[in-house]
Design a protein around this nucleic acid. Sequence first.
DNA 1: GTTTTCATGTAACCCGTTACATGATTCA
DNA 2: TGAATCATGTAACGGGTTACATGAAAAC
Lengths: 195, 195
Amino acid sequence: MSRRSGILEFAVLGLLHDSPMHGYELRKRLNVLLGSFRAFSYGTLYPCLKSLVAQGYLMEEKNPGDPYVPATAINGKRSKIVYRLTPEGKQRFEELLSESGPDAWEDEQFGVHFAFFGQTDRAVRMRVLEGRRNRLEERLERMRSALAKTRERLDRYTLELQRHGLESVEREVRWLNELIETERGNRAPRGGDSP
Amino acid sequence: MSRRSGILEFAVLGLLHDSPMHGYELRKRLNVLLGSFRAFSYGTLYPCLKSLVAQGYLMEEKNPGDPYVPATAINGKRSKIVYRLTPEGKQRFEELLSESGPDAWEDEQFGVHFAFFGQTDRAVRMRVLEGRRNRLEERLERMRSALAKTRERLDRYTLELQRHGLESVEREVRWLNELIETERGNRAPRGGDSP
DNA sequence: GTTTTCATGTAACCCGTTACATGATTCA
DNA sequence: TGAATCATGTAACGGGTTACATGAAAAC
């Protein structure tokens, strides 16, 4: 119990929503999906899967194709396990998908939400994007005023570091604004190769 | 024992190298210095300070100006404590400053190293900057080939997320290249308001 | 006089990694 | 036939936060 990270649970449910999988395969997909800002090891994933089963969101299936029951365990435990969403799991995923409150503005939470925007209602996408942007603009203001206060006391490199950090956030704000514009126009993100 | 994070130790020694301070003041400076990529709470800082004292890198001084010994503790423990570097502490800091190996290329380690570039030898700065850039270029290559492999299977938003992550890293590479150029020319970083 | 900020600490918890253990399957 | 990769799991540890506890000093 209690193995939760919010973001892991979300991503697992989302990936299994598309198609059932082994933990092993799941982990690879996970690290492609979230790779640009997060990664998970087996030590995190497997216990999380067990916990999601215990919560009734997933069910385990022994793949009939390949038995693969090594003698490790005393009585035929441990085989290739395919995880599949239960109806409760689907419901839970929809629930997570529809969240657009403050939590979804935070760095990592935002990342997962964004990764599943393909399955998210347009209205929710809008609220998440705008919330995120506002959060970052608040952060920018705090950073700027903090910088203004200490500016003279900092040497070149500290200043340069600060400037670079600031510009990273400014850049994300611009990115979000572009996405918001696109959403408003109901068009695909620039560079999209879809319809 | 064992309370270590590398980066916290480094930053603490570096800040106390400039001038002795209370833990409280130290934490604020810490979060200005590293704020753009990291923050620490008291629950981390205070135990770390104790551990650095135990290792002989810091000494505690009760500030004679203000006694402030509240009745909390059984026998006059807990007063305003000023932390000061011992000679061993200074030596340790120089040691950390001169490190330019693989560890210093990693995200957070690089951050602290950079923050103290003002006290770092030029040759070391060069090696750190170039090492970091090479690390990131390796990462870019891995990201690009991973992306190329899965490109078709990803929807708009996943793709967009990937693209944004990629460009973040590309941007940092450009930044590093500028810094390296500047170092080569022995000039101040652009925008610098120094001599 | 009361709110804010200064100031120090700790215990409970959380989230996650590393290293280990075990074995099947695939491919050169 | 041996290496790489597939596949599952756990125990020990690491590093950090939150919430709590306590109180002085300054500012309003």
